[in-house]
Design a protein around this nucleic acid. Structure first.
Length: 456
DNA sequence: CGCATCCTTAGGCGG
DNA sequence: CCGCCTCCAGGATGCG
């Protein structure tokens, strides 16, 4: 009633200020326990005003919480958050999980998940980490289908990130949504296999699973934090805090201790987890970095895509700090939402809302080919990103007609996979790292569809 | 040029 | 079942 007298902007601004205040207060509480030094930008005078440029913002001193070696038992949350209280009123509950630094997995579990997530923990701990996929040819058009039991609403909000755990023997997918929720779906258990946690306050921009240890799952968020969900330690700890939104995350293949993220207006940061500090920082783009991808064949080579309309390939060993120069630059006409290396590492596929998918191939990525594709997702859908299948021959990308488009890289044709069970537009995709033919696509309504290989 | 403002869009949910 | 709400993406336009 009363807020009818306020404009949307005013309402949102008041809300932002209140949230920021609560955030500050709760972090101060934890400071004494964790010695986290933390400086957040003050609320902007106008909520719509752009995020501060690097130069105008105070530098925050950051400290890894995980390196403090906090035992799970010593990081007990405030005692007043008895799980029995339904807290159905709109009174703010005391210190919600996503405001806490160190955090136990069980404390981040969201109400409508199963009573215990013990089953999920056991599944993740017992899953056997993958072997390589075979190199036999595969035709998604004739070998993939969507079964009705492989569709579920996993999260309440728009999904931004989706990733399979790298198990060869069971299918578990993890997704992150706009509200900061991280969901797991143990697909074989049907809808009973859905678990939801809320470790973040803002959209979950990326999920990265350790390639040889599926019990370590990193999540990045617009809230400026990277968290590590460690199933062995049963913690969901904050390992990196930025003053800026984190838009992308990627782990260095074969390196347990190195993590890259894209934050703020075009900054690429390298995080050394063992040392608990930033080991590199480069201003690579003029706008947000939407994806970071390592070349599987040469892990010194990374590709970034940016809203500044370019995608670039860099050699991480030799980026000039003052004037970074890319090895390769793809110029689009609009924001670029992804740039991914093919499984062999010899091609790069970029996707832009200029309605083009560009493929670089050949020695030194000198050959460029282009496929026209409708990427006008608008405001309510996550932007489309063409991902590679299990070899260099095709790409998956969403289609606004509620279909999965399969782009053949050899003849540049597009064919649509459709299913009566896919009732909304698939936006974000993940190809299973070791099960050929198993592919997840996630939607703006929080649904996940798992396409699988037709069994014969 | 830097800004403010407006427009587009799909899907869940409530009445 | 229709109409309302979402609301920080990103571009276009138009202003000073």
């Amino acid at each position: 009633m009363a807020d009818k007298t306020l404009t949307d902007y005013e309402r949102r601004r008041i809300d932002n200020i209140r949230r920021n205040g609560e955030m500050m207060a709760s972090l101060m509480l934890h400071q004494k326990a964790s010695s986290l030094l933390y400086s957040r930008r003050s609320p902007s005078p106008k909520p719509q005003s752009k995020k501060p440029k690097l130069s105008s913002s105070p530098v925050a001193i950051r400290r890894s919480l995980r390196t403090q070696g906090l035992p799970p038992s010593s990081s007990t949350p405030p005692s007043d958050d008895s799980p029995s209280s339904p807290s159905s009123s709109d009174q703010p509950p005391s210190t919600p999980p996503w405001k806490q630094g160190p955090l136990r997995i069980s404390d981040a579990l969201v109400g409508d998940s199963p009573l215990s997530d013990r089953d999920l923990m056991d599944v993740i701990k017992s899953g056997s980490v993958a072997s390589e996929v075979d190199d036999l040819g595969f035709d998604p058009m004739v070998e993939m289908c969507l079964k009705p039991e492989n569709v579920a609403r996993v999260l309440p909000e728009r999904i931004l990130s989706v990733r399979f755990l790298p198990f060869g023997d069971q299918v578990v997918v993890t997704v992150g949504d706009k509200a900061g929720n991280v969901g797991f779906w143990d697909v074989g258990k049907g809808r009973d296999g859905v678990y939801v946690y809320k470790p973040h306050a803002s959209p979950v921009s990326g999920i990265s699973v350790h390639p040889f240890a599926a019990t370590k799952i990193f999540t990045s968020s617009y809230d400026g934090f990277i968290r590590l969900m460690d199933v062995e330690e049963e913690t969901f700890n904050m390992i990196y805090a930025s003053d800026f939104e984190i838009f992308s995350i990627s782990q260095v293949p074969n390196d347990h201790n190195s993590l890259y993220c894209g934050e703020g207006t075009g900054i690429l940061k390298a995080w050394d987890e063992r040392a608990g500090k930033v080991s590199g920082s480069w201003e690579l783009h003029e706008d947000r970095i939407n994806t970071i991808d390592f070349n599987p064949q040469n892990t010194n080579s990374i590709a970034t895509s940016s809203t500044d309309r370019t995608a670039c390939i860099w050699d991480v060993r030799s980026i000039n700090k003052d004037s970074p120069e890319s090895l390769k630059k793809v110029q689009h006409l609009r924001a670029v939402h992804s740039a991914f290396f093919s499984p062999s590492g010899s091609c790069l596929a970029t996707t832009s809302i200029d309605d083009k998918v560009i493929i670089l191939s050949g020695s030194d990525f000198d050959d460029l080919s282009m496929i026209l594709h409708n990427n006008q997702t608008g405001r309510w859908l996550s932007s489309f990103r063409a991902i590679w299948g299990w070899d260099d021959s095709f790409l998956f990308i969403g289609n606004m007609r509620r279909a999965v488009d399969v782009i053949s890289t050899s003849n540049k044709t597009t064919i649509s996979l459709e299913s009566e069970h896919m009732t909304s537009i698939p936006c974000r995709f993940s190809a299973h790292p070791c099960l050929k033919g198993t592919m997840a696509c996630a939607t703006a309504g929080g649904k996940v569809n798992i396409w699988t290989k037709i069994s014969r």
